[in-house]
Amino acid sequence: MEIILKPWPWYVSGPLIAIIMFLLIFAGKKFGISSNMRTLCSIAGAGKFSTFFNYDWRSESWNLMVVLGAILGGFLAANYLVEPNFQVNLNPEVVNQLDSYGFSEAGKDFLPAELFSWKNLDPKNIVLLLAGGFLIGFGSRYAGGCTSGHGISGLSNFQLPSLVAVIGFFIGGLIMVHLVFPLIF
């Protein structure tokens, strides 16, 4: 039990993600989470505005079940599978750097309260979270996949387009963290 309560190392977590992909492949599906956003838009009636959302979303409802399970898994893990003194063991250099951006005690909680606290939600954070989400939604559909669809499924299948997309993910992430963060935090 103790080994489950401790953070899981990369060499356990990575192979488990590959197993999840294979379970979906052997079920005749594929591992890709971002397409659920399109399905949710389609269910909400977005097909009235763009033919992009005109498809039989019921054929994709299995993937919504994966998302439902992910929510439940997050609940269980956060509430029952962590030690009381849990913290994210970051590189101390990263902790210092985040401190200079105004994020104190980085890693003490799972997410920085300065950005994600629900109680102290200020207009700036709402704009940043909305903008981050917007870029993720727009970008993943434009690229035709996200970390799971391109990063894991596509690269595992030696898809050159997925490699281009993943290089794009890193260009974008590096620009955000190195060039934009100093301006907004």
Binding site: L128, L129, A131, G132, G133, F134, L135, I136, G137, F138, G139, S140, R141, Y142, A143, G144, C146, T147, H150, P161, S162, V164, A165, V166, I167, G168, F169, F170, I171, G172, G173, L174, I175, M176, V177, V180, F181
Partner: peptide
């Protein structure tokens, strides 16, 4: 689409 979409996604991934 892979490149531009990927970069936009990465910006969001880094931020959120």
């Amino acid at each position: 689409s892979y490149l531009f979409g990927g970069v936009l996604f990465g910006l969001g991934w880094g931020l959120a």
